[in-house]
Nucleic acid binder design. Structure first.
Lengths: 343, 343
DNA sequence: AAAGTTTACTAAACTATTTTAGGTGCTTCA
DNA sequence: TGAAGCACCTAAAATAGTTTAGTAAACTTT
């Protein structure tokens, strides 16, 4: 079962490789190839079930029709859904997707960027960047390599990015808690707070307090370490609840934190929303069926992928577009469920 | 920012491309290249940050270091987790993964197989096959192309496969429902029941009934269409519950069905497990925090990916191994939660 | 009827790597 | 002193496409 090549097609018709190649690349007209020949060649190609070898084509043209996607962990449903949206768009344009997980490790991320670009020769990258890797992206930008950051970006560095409006949607989530009667709203967030999403959500929290005329209290914000969410959340929550002035609501900066809150509250024999109201960022399936159902900020996940892909394609096809940077900020929607009801 | 090639390295050292290539491919010893030269070359390679072009290498050697993964939908957390396990193993061996979603469409699947094989020149495939595409895999087997089916396989066709013990674990799930007091256990499954997993789960259901001496009733098995799970489940459940002899337990053949049951029961104002006990196949996050927590058969997801990858690598590296077929059947674990408690 | 134009096609170069089949110059030994 | 052996290295082919720079033959024009 030898692989069929251009040459096989050409030989079996007694024509040159050039001819077949030109026809397959839709350059028949512009090279004055007779419609008759075009038909003959196309028929043969179909008959022999020929498919061009991407490696050979890529080698000659530099076009691999590959794009790379780097996320923290593809088994995280949030990224899995983004990946799917990107895959669909890519395949529509005959591009193929290579997905890699960085595990939030800047070094692994940098290595992945290099491997995808230099070894696999991807034509563009979509990346949900880790904490601290601006240099890598500065380099990419400098050599005008097409890429788009999603979900997170760097405050002091401008490049293509598609993110959600973390500030405003967090603000409205916290406002909603206050409106539903909460007097002391705490914020649970994660400790590498220089990830843009997290600091922005914190900012939204502060804005909502300010707007409501509630003074900000340092003690009501806690950054728990990524590595030990469960225990840290438990301890934090216990502290907050047995304080002189116990909290009556908590805003969780991501879904993992919210799940930990659910677990803790159930462990402590308390009830949401009666003993504590809560809203989470990131609407995952769990929240719809949890007890009680959890209010959450739902990100337009598929849109993130789609918009990123559009920008990337534009960058790939239009050199000039690489000089500027496109910043897309998508709105997120607050889905209200029982965890934040006004009792 | 021109790409650095072998030739650049060679020229900058005044040696031949051959030399550099041999050294980089660890063939220095066998070609009697002096250790001195090896050092000089390796140093330069590092200094110039050189990385071989995979397209050129693949073209010459036929080795692309690519493997393809075809699943129904990568945004499904089950497949996302498998994909992650595969990715990790692949990268460890310097292989790269190309993930595609078939949307359960046999034609799309066949096309993906072709594109991945002929165009992308992947060295092997891991596939969670759709309903009815045996011919595609028969062809692959015939030309001894390395591939492994996961999650599902075809009853009358033998090829590498890694699946879970659907029959036995379904049987024990249903047995558990009966043991906990259920008298009339129904089965909710999906309509293309010739997907091996589904028919096996149905078989397990029947075995459990038989074992308990409960006669099988056609009416207590319903295959709902994939396209309209929500409504169909609702209607079916209502039928079952208002029958002369209402059911008191249901075994769901997958997590989507179970989620639909949760929704319906909540819509109807009923309570699990008091009005209806349930167990699902496929343990997803939702079930841990749902109200009530749902008992489920947990598949060893990462193992599936890992084992498949091991078999695939073996096939890729050892031609002889392609003649036989390896069948791996992994055990699944029943996780008991409140949805099936004995009241 | 020579020159120019058009039509329909092709030979060969090129891409970056691996691999085959040597080649060079030194030492060793008869 | 000339052949053999050895240690080290290289030229060129090969891979499967695309692209450049044509060419041959037929047809048109003057």
């Amino acid at each position: 079962m030898k692989k069929i090549t251009l040459e096989d097609i050409a030989k079996s018709l007694g024509v040159s490789k050039t001819l077949v190649s030109l026809i397959l690349n839709n350059k028949a007209k512009e090279h004055g190839i007779s419609p008759d020949t075009v038909d003959r060649v196309l028929k043969k190609v179909k008959e022999m079930n020929y498919m061009p070898n991407q490696a050979a084509r890529g080698l000659r043209t530099g076009k691999t029709n590959l794009i790379g996607l780097i996320v923290a962990d593809i088994s995280n449903p949030f990224y899995a859904r983004i990946s799917r949206a990107i895959e669909d768009l890519a395949w529509k344009k005959d591009y193929h997707l290579m997905v890699c997980s960085s595990d939030e490790d800047p070094e692994k991320e940098a290595q992945l960027v290099r491997i995808l670009r230099e070894k696999m020769q991807v034509e563009g990258l979509i990346i949900s960047p880790t904490t601290d890797n601006v240099e890598v992206f500065r380099d990419l930008k400098k050599i005008e390599f097409p890429f788009v950051l999603i979900d997170r970006n760097y405050p002091k560095f401008s490049c293509n990015s598609v993110v959600v409006d973390n500030i405003r949607s967090s603000q409205s989530a916290v406002k909603h808690l206050i409106d539903s009667g909460a007097k002391r709203v705490a914020l649970l967030t994660l400790s590498p707070a220089h990830i843009s999403t997290l600091s922005e959500r914190q900012e939204g929290y502060k804005l909502a307090l300010k707007e409501a005329g509630i003074p900000f209290e340092e003690d009501l914000v806690r950054e728990v370490p990524f590595s030990d969410i469960k225990n840290s959340v438990k301890k934090t929550l216990q502290d907050w609840l047995k304080a002189k002035q116990p909290i009556d609501a908590v805003f969780c900066a991501n879904n993992h934190l919210a799940v930990a809150v659910l677990e803790t509250i159930s462990d402590l024999g308390l009830r949401i929303p009666y003993d504590l109201r809560m809203v989470s960022f990131d609407d995952v399936d769990v929240f719809k069926f949890s007890y009680p159902p959890v209010s959450a900020v739902a990100q337009p996940i598929e849109d993130i992928g789609t918009r990123a892909m559009e920008i990337l394609f534009n960058n790939i096809n239009d050199r000039a577009s690489r000089e500027s940077a496109e910043h897309v900020v998508l709105p997120a929607e607050l889905v209200i469920r029982r965890s934040s009801s006004s009792l």
